[in-house]
Design a protein around this nucleic acid. Sequence first.
DNA 1: AAGAGTCTCAACCGCTCGATT
DNA 2: AAATCGAGCGGTTGAGACTCT
Length: 346
Amino acid sequence: MGRAPCCDKASVKKGPWSPEEDAILKTYIEQHGTGGNWIALPQKIGLKRCGKSCRLRWLNYLRPNIRHGGFSEEEDDIICSLYISIGSRWSIIAAQLPGRTDNDIKNYWNTRLKKKLLGKQRREQADRRASLKQEIMTKREINESFVMVPGTIPHQESPYWPDVQAIVMNQNQGSHLMDQESIRDLLAKLGGRFYDDNQGPNLFTKLNNYSLEGSSRQDHQVLYTNSVDMLSSSAPMRSMDSTCCSQFPNSNYSGPNMSQDGLESMLVELGGLACSNPQHVEGLESFYGMDMAASGSTGASSAESNSWGNINSLGYPQLVSDYETCLQSMPQDSSFEDSSFFGRPQ
DNA sequence: AAGAGTCTCAACCGCTCGATT
DNA sequence: AAATCGAGCGGTTGAGACTCT
């Protein structure tokens, strides 16, 4: 059984507000306030409107000092930064922009800012990916000539995720294609933290916890303040935490000496996470040098609809730069097996 | 000029959370 | 402890404006 409606749907007016309705609502609230009860307010002032509709109209258009349109570059930057930090918490973002409403910012992001940013990002990425992809394919050819794993498809189209079984078999055969350190880094790329640096939970962890567990509205401001503090202090983002561990309930990978079974089950779950968390996985395209967004398998279409929108591509440059750093630090003759391929600069 | 396609944004919907009973 | 209620939030919708062909 659903919740009882807040008002009689049949008797309330819907759709655009007339100037008369605006005047009635505005005049009343300016003189008497909302009375702390939006539901009762429309009846009190003779408006055939739902209380929620009155609240929205007041907050978004009638209250004083509201600004519409004409977003400045500075405001764009703030919105983008906060979106990257905390996601679609429009009310928190709006709180940092005086005169702006969450609805306005949400619309602005969805209709303009996102496209503007993605267009810019994708142009830059296209160039970088082309060279990156070429380099990785070269390394893969070297690797395949060195290790041929039974049961895998040698030239599978777009193998965005490595064959888990093959990786584990490689482990068993003594190949260090993915050693534990590499896996920790890989998991860190998926959005977690290992407590191996004695620094406690970082921004990503807190935001991840926030996202996963929810939070009271009173925490919003605290969260934002902490986020800004941590961002400004350039806290390390590469790490793995208990939140991430909880995403791999069957795997024991948090300890320093992961068992072979633990490794295997973790990799299996990693594949599952790849499917269930495209917003995290997409960022790994730099990891594998593949254009996941273009694949239609785990990429943009699903990511676009998740709660983070397609923000993954906003995070992409960081991952690319990680990888590029890695490449630069790699000896010219190092093979594909080198664990630094998986994102851990030596 | 007109029809089709796209974009914008005001408004609605359904949900969660915290307060109250 | 459970039920109920209102406030507030983020996602989505759809009408009108705008652009393209």
